[in-house]
Write a protein that binds this DNA or RNA. Structure first.
Lengths: 343, 343
DNA sequence: GTGAAAGCGCTAACAA
DNA sequence: TTGTTAGCGCTTTCAC
């Protein structure tokens, strides 16, 4: 059974296909009475235009593609939801592709978005400095509207909405130093040059410097994977090898929970023996018995500004109605996993 | 800058467009030398066929659409990931739409999938008996391959891969009754007729019946929303109004954590004063201090069978290589939130 | 205000 | 084995 087409509507309404198309696209040239008649037929026959044909002719689709590295992580889950919400607000639908932390998969998804003439692309990148696929050059050449969220690949710093990682990291480190901590380990990504880690480390160092306190390089721990499991393994290993630090900071809450488990299994108490802090302030707070000290990011704001930035790129005369913030300020949330160190 | 097309390849390779198309579609008729030449041009020019044009001509797209009600819930997150994996295995790409628990949104997403000629659709339905949209009738009429996962809407029971909810619920209830529990509250959905709740309740009742023990209707608690927050609120309210039960079962782990918080805030101990069990066995286990007694579902198996079922529908001569299981058996996982009741 | 016709990029008969 | 041609369903000049 074939679908009903614009031609069917034209026939039924006794007009040409062109007229139906004009009605469909809200062109005012059409006579009100014909317009009504056509709309009635569309309604009656429950007609929906073929987006493939439309996209082929128009080279646009009123849809935005979102690439996400991990669907299992609720941090991304929340972002997907919010981004979808804001895209819909401006009449766009959001289509998702999950790259599963695989650069090649990410590439394929993006190529597909480009090929399908999606009007804009949002990328939540992998934890890499860049994805070397030529599709990114293609995106530049064709000036395809693109926005990176949470981080960015080399060369796309301007097309990016972030929270102030250095600032958040500074806030947290400075607070803990003020509470008497001296040796703070920081679990970051293996490659310390990717934006997320680089900025975090910068904020951390700045806090130490401002207080003229020393940082030892080995306190900054690169991790192959920033998962709960890896955090657990690595923390367990380090805590057995070395002397116990005053506190441990994790690159995200996710990992912090893994570290927490390791600390407790080794018989240390949190926060009495070791302080622990995360980053992101994701919902696990509801689940974990002992709420985590962390850095909160306004995800609504991030999502909104990401979409607003994309809209201005897709539509030259789009008016965001307010200034677009590309760097969102985070805030410190002190809960129960950190303490004051008495010396 | 316009994209490079099949015509460009034809010109460059000195053949007709039809020939290029034949090469593209792996038709063996083409002479090996011409074929090589064409492939070389494709490679050199970095050509990718336009999927819109292709879809328009072919009426298929080698893509599967997945509708998911909630991207923030890691249960669905995991399912998305696994479904994507299995679709890719068979050469299909998976496109995601998030309905955000909104039936109209769900409808729009499905219509869009249909209109874009996706070859198959996987639906993870909302917690409703059905979605009344006419698009479902359309799917039947057009015989569009569709598979429901985790639950199904009225009339699609045959097109569905589930775990045995009644069985899992029976397993858990029977175990707890065997451990001396008598009054077990069950937090289910508001509408007790939707498959997930209906079957759960059936398994629960059966366990009581087999032991000739009475169930009181009010023990089965309908919940407007099955979120952590709602679980918390509702449990708090009930525990203050009524006498304390021997244990509480939640429709999922998610909700169980909310209930747990309520129990503890009211000063009861788990499991000494009240036992608590969830359902799904999602990863929070790594995060929560006190691992939850729950029912485990083999999500890999679910995802695999869901995709296999879809493949057989999309492709008449697809060979799954094994029997497709539409009902996956769950297993009981006893951890630390349940006890033996001494009477 | 409306219709005829060409074109978007690809596939699929049918010829050659 | 390859080329010609006519669509797929929609939009968009350009006449009328």
């Amino acid at each position: 059974m074939s679908s009903i087409t614009l031609k069917d509507i034209a026939r039924k309404a006794g007009v040409s296909e062109a007229t139906v198309s004009l009605v469909l696209n809200n062109k005012t040239v059409v006579n009100v009475r014909t317009r009504e008649r056509v709309l009635k037929c569309i309604e009656e026959m429950n007609y929906r235009p073929n987006p493939l044909a439309r996209g082929l002719a128009l080279r646009r689709s009123m849809t935005v593609g979102l690439v996400c590295p991990d669907s299992e992580n609720p941090y991304y889950g929340k972002l997907m939801k919010l981004l979808g919400h804001y895209c819909n607000r401006y009449g766009y639908s959001l289509v998702l592709g999950v790259s599963n932390n695989d650069p090649e998969m990410e590439t394929r998804i993006i190529e597909n978005f480009v090929d399908k003439k999606y009007d804009g692309i949002i990328i939540l990148p992998l934890n890499l400095k860049t994805n070397n696929s030529p599709v990114f050059q293609e995106i530049r050449d064709k000036k395809i509207p693109i926005v990176f969220g949470t981080s960015y690949y080399t060369g796309f710093k301007e097309d990016c909405v972030l929270t102030d990682y250095a600032g958040g990291s500074y806030l947290l480190t400075d607070y803990l130093l003020g509470q008497g901590h001296r040796e703070l380990w920081y679990f970051v990504t293996d490659d310390k040059e990717i934006p997320v880690s680089k900025e975090r480390i910068a904020g951390y160092r700045r806090a130490y410097e401002e207080r003229s306190l020393p940082v030892q390089e080995e306190w900054i721990v690169g991790c192959d994977s920033i998962s709960v499991e890896y955090g657990y393994e690595r923390a367990k290993q380090l805590l057995q090898e070395k002397t116990c630090p005053d506190g441990i900071l994790a690159i995200n809450d996710y990992m912090a929970y893994g570290i927490k488990k390791a600390i407790q299994e080794l018989g240390y108490r949190i926060p009495e023996d070791i302080s622990l802090a995360g980053y992101d302030d994701v919902f696990y707070q509801m689940i974990a018995e002992q709420p985590l000290t962390t850095v909160h990011q306004d995800m609504e704001k991030m999502a909104e500004n990401t979409v607003l930035l994309l809209m201005t790129k897709m539509n030259k005369d789009f008016d965001p109605g307010k200034k677009i913030e590309k760097i969102i300020s985070p805030s410190l949330v002190v809960r129960s996993t950190t303490k004051k160190v008495i010396r």
